[in-house]
């Protein structure tokens, strides 16, 4: 069978589908000062599955932690129009489960083009393999 660390090099999704892969990628992102990208990506996935009674509070928590401060790594990578859409949704009593989908897509695109290829060339990954 293919060892997990070779699977991680196939796609970002293969990497994010494996606990050890996530851990190593997160360590790499911590070194680079951008672990929030990964946490935000998982927060968006988790948000979709969250029960309706927790959703409004969770939307505020995600918004406050990653988006409201324009100097944060996540906020800087999300388009202004997407942020303004999220700001409108956060104020609603029953936020849409898909309200973070566009932002998640933008952050994922950034990871696929930038941090994920860097990770595959990093000492951390090469030493692991």
């Amino acid at each position: 069978p293919t060892p997990p660390y070779l699977k991680w090099a196939e796609s970002l999704h293969s990497l994010l589908d494996d606990q050890e892969g996530i851990q190593l990628f997160r360590n790499f992102l911590c070194q680079e000062g951008c672990a929030d990208l990964l946490d935000f990506w998982f927060a968006c996935s988790g948000f979709r599955k969250t029960s309706q009674e927790k959703r409004a509070k969770l939307a505020k928590a995600i918004y406050r932690k990653y988006i409201v401060d324009g100097s944060g790594i996540v906020s800087r990578q999300i388009k202004a129009a997407t942020k303004s859409f999220i700001r409108d949704c956060v104020g609603r009593p029953h936020p849409d489960p898909a309200m973070f989908e566009q932002a998640q897509t933008e952050i994922q695109g950034m990871m696929e083009e930038n941090t994920y290829p860097l990770f595959l060339k990093s000492d951390l990954y090469l030493e692991y393999t």
């Binding site: 589908d17 946490d39 998982f42 927060a43 988790g46 599955k49 969250t50 969770l58 928590a61 406050r64």
Partner: peptide, 20 residues
């Protein structure tokens, strides 16, 4: 009542793949 941080952590963990 959960704090916002706890809620966020719980949400992130819920989206992670389970141990294989």
């Amino acid at each position: 009542i959960d704090s916002e941080d706890d809620l966020l952590q719980e949400c992130i963990s819920s989206a992670m793949p389970k141990k294989k």
